[in-house]
Design a protein around this nucleic acid. Structure first.
Lengths: 329, 329
DNA sequence: ATCCGGATCTGGAACGTTCCAGACGCGTTT
DNA sequence: AAACGCGTCTGGAACGTTCCAGATCCGGAT
């Protein structure tokens, strides 16, 4: 180590001084720090990790950087990780399962101390294998997903219920649901919609349109649904809600006067589109922080799985209002 | 190494077999791979990096994950890095300069083989210090920014010119500019606007409103600007353009009939808002690929700085049209 | 004068790889 | 029979840290 030579001490002492351990005299410490500064020295995390057996790194694996839902979860992870002295590294699968698997592998090879997976694209076995080496938390799936993997998720049924009840409170009865693909979150939202309609005595009004193809299907389903005379739509996510807003606008039934629309996820979209979209908000920041907490618990020796489910909240904006007069009943 | 014991060979041979080097007999290799598979063995990148002096890791440092402009650049970096066998790790500054500096430090300590900085928040000295240890490319600043740091950027003047000429071609003369904060990109776009107005013989029509405060100022400036009877607005970015669209809608001059609006950056916003926003598109994917290329060149021994400037293109959508009759002149 | 204890500092082992020089066995050439 | 070359395999050095046992020095207590 050049710093040791420059300061005229042993490498051991340089290590102690740079880490601020006590047992190094004031004068020597100053000399060492000055030398390190002058030489632009930075300790080598690879070597440190090798000898210590831990890296103080947390890895976050995400499917899709462009998905604004994910990024806030990441912020929550980062905040809490930072408070505890961890550094967060992100790896990115770009909507490709094999790439995602490779990235997970890279994180493991780096010997990260824990992994937060913000994606439901990975096979359970892959995740379970990872969990055998290092704590793994998955964000976004409510149920047990893979052995040894903790989960953090929002309560999709409760979110759907909040959305439907809000519409019912406004006076709507003909409330339709624009459903998503067959993923678990979509299914839970649809189930929550059905249950709430039943609980409200509106079982007979239940109407679910599936998106099917995620891009084209959205517009078609939205159009079909509007043709049926519903006064309100609960959409599986904000993008689907946007499709409804657009079709409604074209059909001369712009929200909220012509039709009320509720989205899910409260993405930035909800605040840029007009009218501003009423949407179910997942506590993403809290979910991220919770994920870090679960990782640390496991590092602390906890065994067994934990599955945290958080209750989302409804953010009311301009896309919902009372139904047009004369349409009730 | 347990794999060595399990396969009954030396650790050296395990290393050779797992890397697929020749000089290992077929039979032994199979036995080693089987043992590794069975034990779930993964090589330790820390140790490998330590002995090889390189990690095959590229670090990408970004200010803000939520900024959709950045994420596509990242995809470009990833694509090209992957083709060359590198793994890309992302570090995230969350709009905080000191955090950004810490994250850069973490990447350096990890001994990444190169760093792509997608942020203009770092001080030049910090970047220059990093560049003394490892190749660094900065994306988003056209000019030399810090000694030893290559740059990749789009030509903001050319982008502004394309936007203004498009509006002029449609018949607009009263074209105003909604300017951004004092950052170099904003300044270059404003300069491009002014130059093009002059070149078109419209110097007398030049009108620039500054945003000032990035959130509230946007709406105020948009409103002020609409009050002056301009028929078209070139906004410094898509968010500013959105503010104009909203104010115009409120004032009964909805785009494109009432006023034409052009944004910059062609973010996903441009495709979700209505009317769809005409916007200047930076070749972000190409910029990312180019950044990787510059890193590799430098690893290959190139010295001196390179500064690449790419030409953006205009994506015409529904927010621009000919001016209302009777407003010209 | 001797011993003790604390503060300060040092040298070598260890971490898990890769790299390198060389060992071993075996068939072929001289 | 000896020498050589090749394919296969091994053991130790090296990478840059941290950790640990212990060395050295000095002042104060015995």
């Amino acid at each position: 180590m050049d710093v040791a030579a420059a300061a005229g001490v042993s490498k051991s002492l340089v290590s102690l001084a740079l880490r601020g351990e006590h047992g190094v005299s004031e004068a020597t410490s100053a000399r060492i720090l000055a030398a390190a500064e002058r030489l632009g020295y930075r300790s080598n995390m690879l070597a440190r990790g090798l000898v210590q057996g831990r890296t103080m790194l947390l890895g976050v694996l995400l499917t899709d950087l462009a998905n604004p839902y994910h990024t806030e979860v990441v912020s929550g992870v980062e905040e809490s990780a930072e408070e505890r002295g961890f550094t967060v590294l992100l790896a990115h699968g770009r909507r490709d399962r094999s790439r995602l698997t490779r990235q997970l592998d890279a994180l493991l090879q780096l010997n990260v101390d824990g992994v937060v997976v913000v994606s439901s694209w990975l096979e359970p076995e892959v995740l379970a294998a990872a969990a055998r080496r290092v704590p793994v938390v998955m964000v976004g799936r409510p149920e047990a997903f893979a052995p040894g993997v903790d989960t953090v998720a929002n309560d999709d049924r409760a979110g759907a219920e909040a959305a439907v009840r809000h519409l019912a409170d406004l006076g709507h009865e003909r409330i339709a649901h624009l459903a998503g693909t067959g993923r678990p979150a979509s299914r839970a939202r649809a189930a929550g919609y059905r249950e709430t309609m039943r609980a409200l005595g509106l079982a007979g009004r239940t109407a679910v349109h599936g998106v099917g193809d995620p891009v084209r299907g959205r517009d078609r389903a939205a159009a079909a649904l509007l043709g049926e005379g519903h006064t309100a739509v609960f959409a599986v996510n904000d993008l689907a809600a946007l499709a409804v807003l657009d079709r409604a606008h074209e059909a001369g039934r712009a929200a909220p006067g012509g039709v009320s629309v509720v989205g899910y996820d409260n993405t930035s979209l909800a605040e840029t589109v007009r009218p501003r979209l009423t949407s179910v908000d997942q506590p993403r920041l809290v979910m991220g922080r919770l994920a870090t907490g679960l990782l640390l618990e496991r590092m602390g020796g906890r065994t067994g799985e934990r599955h945290e489910v958080l209750t989302p909240s409804l953010v009311v904006r301009g896309s919902t209002a009372a139904p047009p007069r004369g349409t009730t009943g």
